[in-house]
Design a binder for these strands. Structure first.
Lengths: 231, 231
DNA sequence: AGGCTAACGCAAGTCCTCTTGCGTTAGCGC
DNA sequence: GCGCTAACGCAAGAGGACTTGCGTTAGCCT
């Protein structure tokens, strides 16, 4: 299209995982004004999503609300979806410091409750959909989140998630939790048992707007997970 | 515009649920040319999705491929997303005649295999996303798929799904299956146990492109479901 | 078979999204 | 502080999505 296939999605994590690029281009300016602009745009987008309930927000509207010029937004993100994806990664990352309650059952329940609470936010479902759309875009771009299909399968067989996968961050946190439990002598759950047994139902119910995710329900999900580990 | 605010999204189910509208407007023409046009558009859209791998297809392109004029498409569906939603409802409805293998375990496994196979189609993930987007649009439009939140909750408590819900059709089929099992003397599973335990993991892995949904995996999902019913 | 009109084809339009070039501001290294 | 230039603001402008009015075709009903 524009002939430049990398700039749009690369600015999302400005100063974190600095891959050792030998001839890295110009040095980015991540602080000060740039950071303020990013902040303002993300904040405005979150507000508009919460108000309107959907992600189809014209960039012009985000520009007006945030006080940032349209052009700047287009140059940095190019599409509304990229903004929402950026927002969702920030939100669903910082929010998810995994609890340490002392027991696996308690940890899992707290985790489930946090996940359910995040989804219950006014923009929770929208952010989840953005995450999904992000995963789909990666796939459409040709690669499977930067890793080829076979090595992804190898990861999954080993009970892990490739580092560039949208769910990777959460996978790491969960693995820590499961390791803690094992070191306490509690049964060792596999990562995908938790993903399938706890996260998947919460996500399904969120996406299809099925209510009833109270503590009793979440508790039953956790119990099922643990029952399998025992058997 | 046309002054008619219901035609766009109402043509999806031409002759099925005729709500008793007293002063129903002009009588629709659902057969012949209209049906051919609908067929051509849906077919072209499915092809383009399978080829390009995503749903961001300009209507002009669908018009060219299908031989139907842009204007006609705009008047009937208004957005690409509506077409894909239409397509997904048709596809995911006709395809899902629920098997009757003689045992609950066999039925559930066959069901899981069909679901996984449908998701493995080149356009499976896209159609699933369209279904989700459809559910979200309903929600954004103000109502919860035509039913208010409380009555939805009541349905869910009773182990059922409201009739207008995107998953309703599949829910009905599944309930039939579960009833059959109960009448054979097998344990009675609740609908949402199947949704949470089988469909949710399949959907999660589809949406996030996690591979490894082979028969062994699907079998383990079914086993877990049944283990809970026995306990 | 014939009338009525829903639905389609066609061709201009209109509106809005997105781009491009250039001047200005301000982050970062010295 | 000073220089360099990344990132922003601004104002046109190009391109594509969507609409509208009207004539034509063909379902559906009697």
């Amino acid at each position: 299209m524009t002939g430049n296939q990398r700039d749009t999605t690369d600015d999302h994590e400005p100063g974190r995982a600095n891959r050792a690029e030998p001839e890295s281009g110009p040095r980015r300016r991540t602080g000060g004004r740039s950071a303020r602009v990013r902040e303002a745009v993300l904040k405005a987008t979150a507000e508009l999503i919460a108000e309107q309930g959907h992600e189809r927000i014209p960039i012009a509207e985000i520009a007006e609300r945030s006080g940032v010029h349209q052009t700047s937004i287009y140059r940095r993100w190019r599409t509304t979806n990229a903004i929402v994806l950026d927002l969702s990664q920030e939100r669903l990352t910082s929010l998810w410091a995994v609890p340490d309650t002392g027991s696996l059952h308690g940890d899992l329940l707290a985790y489930a409750q946090r996940a359910a609470a995040a989804m219950a936010e006014p923009d929770g479902a929208v952010l989840l959909r953005a995450l999904i759309a992000g995963a789909a875009e990666h796939a459409a771009a040709g690669d499977n989140a930067g890793v080829d299909a076979e090595s992804v399968a190898a990861y999954v067989d080993a009970g892990n998630i490739p580092a560039t996968h949208p769910l990777a961050e959460r996978g790491r946190d969960l693995l820590d939790m499961l390791d803690r439990a094992a070191s306490r002598g509690e049964p060792r759950l596999r990562l995908f048992d938790v993903l399938d047994g706890i996260l998947a139902p919460i996500y399904l119910r969120t996406l299809f707007r099925i209510p009833g995710m109270d503590d009793a329900y979440l508790g039953s999900l956790v119990d099922k997970c643990l029952a399998h580990a025992a058997s």
